[in-house]
């Protein structure tokens, strides 16, 4: 499957004189869309000419034909179930990671004691403990949210802590020389300086959140795109499972974009300056 990565080197402005093909191709998203369309076309061609059995690699046409047969309402139900868990887990991860990163930066003692613990938690495969979490937390969204949070919070802690510590030392000295209250050093200097770090972590974590929600759905759920894929696979409905995969990929991309937009909208200064 070809999921083209968002183009990070995209020129932000295409100020030019006359429109030509090269400029159209350079417009944001066009290259990505063309790549996806081209891959899908090649794939369809291969599936037809090489006679690949659908249980190995279904043709895109048979994948897309499953979309209407499921129906918009069902899709919406599955997407919403996954999205809700992914976003709540992501939100909870932010709510835990940022204060935790602040604590780690503020307190060397915590950094020495808590950090190794975090690394241990991170290196424990969440997939392995997911069934335990589900038995402990019971039915409902709670266990799935916790699993999602566990999967996506670590990059945020590390990146936020790095950002908080990467503040220019001069400003910290300025803060100290002013004898300002300690919390303002965090809110007015360190946190804003960490914004680029936090957002690069958020971009990674939001796609991890989708993975987390899917992992959780594999273990226990009655709705969601991950459940839908598992369910379709177990029914040997491979084209249907692939359709679910496409939806998941689209969700991840959309969330990634949403985080990028949020940064552009709320913290334009934190982006690399266009020259």
């Amino acid at each position: 499957m070809s999921l083209s990565m968002p183009d990070f080197s995209q020129p932000e402005s295409t100020k030019g004189k006359r429109p030509d093909l090269r400029r159209i191709l350079a417009a944001p998203g066009v290259a990505a869309i063309l790549t996806i369309l081209g891959t899908v076309a090649l794939w369809e061609l291969a599936a037809r000419t090489l006679n690949i059995p659908s249980y190995l690699l279904p043709a895109p046409s048979s994948i897309f034909s499953t979309f209407p047969s499921i129906g918009a309402e069902r899709w919406a139900g599955h997407v919403w179930a996954t999205l809700r868990v992914a976003l709540l887990g992501f939100g909870l991860a932010i709510a835990i990671a940022i204060p935790l990163a602040i604590a780690l930066v503020r307190s060397p003692a915590l950094n020495r004691t808590l950090y190794p613990l975090l690394v241990i938690v991170q290196s424990t495969p969440v997939v392995a403990i997911a069934p335990i979490i589900i038995v402990v937390l019971g039915a409902g969204d709670a266990p799935r949210i916790v699993i999602t949070t566990l999967i996506c919070f670590f990059p945020m802690v590390v990146s936020t802590a790095t950002g908080l510590a990467a503040t220019p030392p001069e400003l910290i000295e300025l803060s100290r020389s002013l004898r300002a209250p300690g919390f303002r050093e965090i809110t007015q200097i360190r946190l804003p300086f960490a914004v680029p770090y936090i957002f690069s972590a958020l971009k990674i974590s939001v796609t991890l959140a989708v993975i987390g929600a899917v992992v959780a759905e594999f273990c226990a759920s009655d709705a969601g795109v991950g459940y839908f894929i598992q369910f379709s696979t177990s029914m040997f409905k491979l084209p249907q499972a692939w359709a679910g995969l496409f939806v998941l990929a689209a969700m991840s991309l959309a969330l990634f974009q949403a985080v990028s937009w949020a940064q552009k909208l709320l913290f334009p200064w934190s982006l690399p300056r266009k020259r």
């Binding site: 220019p168 001069e170 400003l171 000295e173 300025l174 804003p192 913290f267 200064w269």
Partner: peptide, 9 residues
């Protein structure tokens, strides 16, 4: 300071 170290935002 040696560098201006202004708040970029």
């Amino acid at each position: 300071f040696q560098k201006p170290t202004l708040l970029p935002w």
